[in-house]
Amino acid sequence: MGNFIKDRKPQDDPWTPYTGLEDVDNLPTGDVYVPFEEWQSQKEALKLRNNRLGVILENTDDVAELVPDFDRLDLVVLQFPKMADGRAFTQAKLLRERYGYTGEIRAVGDVLHDQVFYMQRCGFNAFEMRPDQDIPTVLHAFDEMTVTYQPSADEELPIWRR
């Protein structure tokens, strides 16, 4: 088992990232996720496949554009190009809360022990941890804090209304 955590458990990752998407017929078999740009240009062809589909967004992509395809998207991958870049938190939160996406939201990039708590609160449920992270200790990080103040993907009401 590698560095992948989903729903708080270490798991094997069934997905294959795919970037060189000239020809839809040449895609690897199984579940693949493709860059947003490719998704937009090829999605009709992609949707004919018999496998699950996902998409990986840049931090500047607007998650609202995925809404019409939610029923065919099982995975949305969001990136942390470096630890300090927090744009994907907003992307995840909007996907889950505003647009009601129920599939997998995955964090990739600089995904570290001390951020997963915030990530899960924003709606991430899958994490490709950076290879140097110690998975057993990371699993504790989800519960390091149990008190939260804000409404978020994991909590409907602010603390003063609970």
Binding site: G86, F89, T90, K93, F117, Y149, P158
Partner: peptide, 16 residues
């Protein structure tokens, strides 16, 4: 105080 509660460990705005 309301701002304190809202902003403390705000999951979305901790890496601005």
């Amino acid at each position: 105080e309301l701002i304190r509660q809202w902003s403390t460990f705000h999951p979305e705005f901790n890496f601005l």
